[in-house]
Computed example of a mutant assay.
Amino acid sequence: MKKYVKRGLAFLLSCTVLLAAGCGEKFDASGYTKAVLDAGTRGETEKYEEFTKSSKEEAKKQYDNFIDTEMQEFEALGVSEELLTKYKEYVASLLKETKYEVGEAKEDEDGNFTVEVSVQPIKVFDGVKDTLNQKVQEYTAQVEQAAMQNQQVPSDQEITETIGQMLYETLNGTLANLSYGEAVKKVVHVKETAEKNVWEIPETEARELFLSLLDMTGVEEIANP
């Protein structure tokens, strides 16, 4: 279970950086920042397409490829395609519930911009530990009882699949009543690249911004029951 949870959570921890560049002479750094966030968390790519001069297909493909790449963490576990699909849907749904407000951009003397973003992080594992532990304990007791009665017990893969399903059900069950932390301020810099009128947010800042949308407090307690 530890291996499963740790690998699965790697998906959530890294599920967020959508690298992009914006074009235009009269540049709206605040609008660009929001467009990157909306595209990366909600799959809403219309504004992103305008800023980056990309087609809808290109923007959608980038978003889909981003999610698919991170899903490799689950694929490596050998769980069923059905369960992988469920996790993919869960993560997409979770990201759509993120809360952020993009402030006005401030231009510096070099012509670059600073943008402040107010984030209310989702407490992803709030209330998950107790529910998941109860399900695992009940399942473990059933397996142990079957073994004691010389009945057939699940294979390792069946156990992995079952626990994976339990974790999915527990996480997915929180979507209807998510908890959020207090708003925190994040600052990103929108800079013009070597190519004139092409803008970008530094990768490290974009990653930190996206990661701040999810509060992972409690993950260690779940990974090490």
Rank of each mutant, 00 (worst) to 15 (best):
K3A: 09
V5W: 09
V5G: 03
K6V: 12
C15K: 07
C15A: 11
T16V: 03
T16G: 11
L18H: 03
L19I: 12
A20C: 05
A21D: 13
E25R: 13
E25K: 13
S30C: 03
G31W: 00
Y32V: 06
Y32F: 15
K34A: 10
L37K: 01
L37G: 02
T41H: 02
T41M: 08
R42V: 01
E44P: 00
E49Q: 11
E50S: 07
K56N: 12
E57W: 08
E58D: 14
K60H: 12
Y63A: 12
D64Y: 10
N65I: 14
I67R: 05
D68C: 13
T69D: 15
E70A: 09
A76H: 09
V79M: 12
S80I: 08
E81I: 14
E81T: 15
E82Y: 06
K88R: 15
V91G: 06
V91L: 13
A92E: 09
K96P: 00
K99W: 03
Y100G: 07
V102P: 01
G103I: 06
N112K: 03
T114D: 03
V115D: 01
S118Q: 03
Q120P: 00
P121Y: 06
I122S: 02
V128N: 06
D130L: 14
L132Y: 10
L132W: 09
V143P: 00
Q145A: 01
A147E: 04
A147C: 01
M148G: 02
Q151H: 01
V153Q: 04
D156N: 09
Q157I: 08
T162M: 14
T170E: 06
N172Q: 13
L175Q: 05
L178Q: 05
A183H: 00
H189W: 09
K191I: 10
E192K: 08
E192D: 07
T193N: 03
T193I: 00
E195M: 10
W199E: 07
I201P: 01
P202Y: 08
T204M: 05
L214F: 15
V219Q: 11
